[in-house]
């Protein structure tokens, strides 16, 4: 589904990504973890073309992200993304946030779009918040709406960029629950996160990145029980002692 092949990216002199490669198959849930500055957010933003890269190739469902002929907006509409800071549109109601792209990009009728929106809001547990505006909701609620907004486009895969990092601790679980359900329903997911509990529960594979490189890329159990590299071991010991 998603192929990342030898991707390298430089910001001027500084190399943010060093020959990163991995594959995400349909239905797989892959978690990317690592210390800050390791390039995980940059890498995931390359997948839907929000960040550019100088070397390598990324294919989404067979379509190259950097090919000039690729219809990038169309590609993006097929891959959902959830951001660390939710990024709901503050001037639109919750409902409008979810229906905007459905109507404007997919061309759905307003009626169908609203139906879908309501169904998704029910799924994430926020049906009564319909008429409200983003500023009136808590962080956890906003992030769940953001997930619904992305799902409304019927994506083939979902990208998560540190979805719970900006949330107060008591709200993290409500968002993770939604993500767990999504994973169990068979969605292809690429998730950048620090939440190892989530990884242990639903991930198929875990990727560890450090200083722009993919250092480990293992099935879940192997990663947690027997990581190959010293760096990964150190990272795990620091993060799991909490």
């Amino acid at each position: 589904m998603i192929s990342i092949r030898n991707v390298s990216k430089w910001y001027g002199e500084f190399q943010a990504l060093k020959k990163c490669s991995t594959e995400v198959d349909k239905g797989e849930v892959v978690v990317i973890c690592g210390p800050s500055g390791s390039g995980k957010s940059t890498l995931i933003k390359c997948v839907n073309g929000l960040e550019s890269f100088q070397e390598g190739e990324i294919l989404v469902d067979g379509i190259s992200v950097t090919d000039r002929k690729t219809d990038l907006p169309k590609l993006r509409s097929r891959v959902g993304m959830v951001f660390q800071h939710f990024e709901l549109f503050p001037h639109l109601s919750i409902l409008d946030n979810i229906t905007l792209a459905q109507c404007r990009v997919l061309g759905r009728s307003k009626k169908k779009a609203v139906e879908k929106a309501v169904q998704l809001l029910q799924m994430v547990g926020l049906a009564e918040q319909q008429p409200k505006f983003p500023a009136q909701l808590s962080g956890g609620q906003q992030q769940r709406v953001a997930i619904a907004r992305a799902l409304a486009m019927d994506p083939i895969a979902m990208l998560f960029d540190e979805p719970t990092s900006a949330l107060d601790p008591e709200m993290i679980n409500e968002v993770l629950d939604v993500m767990v359900n999504l994973a169990q329903s068979g969605m292809t997911m690429l998730v950048v996160t620090h939440e190892m509990g989530f990884a242990k529960k639903v991930a198929d594979r875990v990727i560890f990145m450090d200083r722009g490189e993919v250092v480990e890329d293992q099935p879940k159990h192997t990663f947690f029980e027997n990581p190959e590299t010293e760096r990964a071991r150190q990272f795990l010991s620091k993060i799991l002692t909490h």
Binding site: S77, R78, V79, F83, F89, V105
Partner: peptide, 28 residues
């Protein structure tokens, strides 16, 4: 850039992102 990114990630074209997302909030 977050708002721009969010709009683009949904598949909106840049023109749409400006007209539907950025400018309504910016003008306010």
């Amino acid at each position: 850039a977050g708002q721009i990114g969010a709009g683009l990630a949904l598949g909106l074209k840049r023109r749409q992102v400006y007209l539907l997302v950025l400018l309504p909030v910016a003008y306010r």
